[in-house]
């Protein structure tokens, strides 16, 4: 699958990464190259082969639905670039 500049720009928008015009061209080449290389998987017959859905054989463990820790708001906010009155601060969103 060859990606063009528009496709790369679309992927970058989905990934929320701003790319410079100049980067689109080289990334289109690089990503296309990687994609055509991984497409060798099409040689493999995977009819009736289930996809791996977990790295461990066991099903996920469950636990009682009770609070195990909390009350650490200062820790949660401690690394935030901007906070106010116990909240994260982001640019104004007006829809």
């Amino acid at each position: 699958m060859a990606l063009d500049r528009a496709a790369v720009a679309h992927i970058a928008a989905l990934a929320r990464i701003r790319l410079a015009e100049a980067e689109l061209e080289s990334l289109a080449d690089e990503l296309s190259h990687i994609l055509s290389w991984v497409e060798q998987l099409n040689e493999v017959d995977t009819t009736d082969v289930p996809p791996t859905t977990s790295a461990v054989a066991a099903s996920l463990p469950m636990r009682e639905d009770v609070v195990t820790e909390g009350g650490c708001g200062d820790d949660v906010l401690g690394n935030a670039p901007r906070t106010a009155r116990g909240f994260f601060v982001v640019p104004k969103v007006v829809e």
């Binding site: 493999v44 995977t46 082969v49 996809p51 791996t52």
Partner: peptide, 13 residues
């Protein structure tokens, strides 16, 4: 891509 790779992963395992 993704689902195909996860099927091949099963074969590798």
């Amino acid at each position: 891509y993704y689902l195909k790779a996860q099927r091949v992963r099963t074969l590798i395992t």
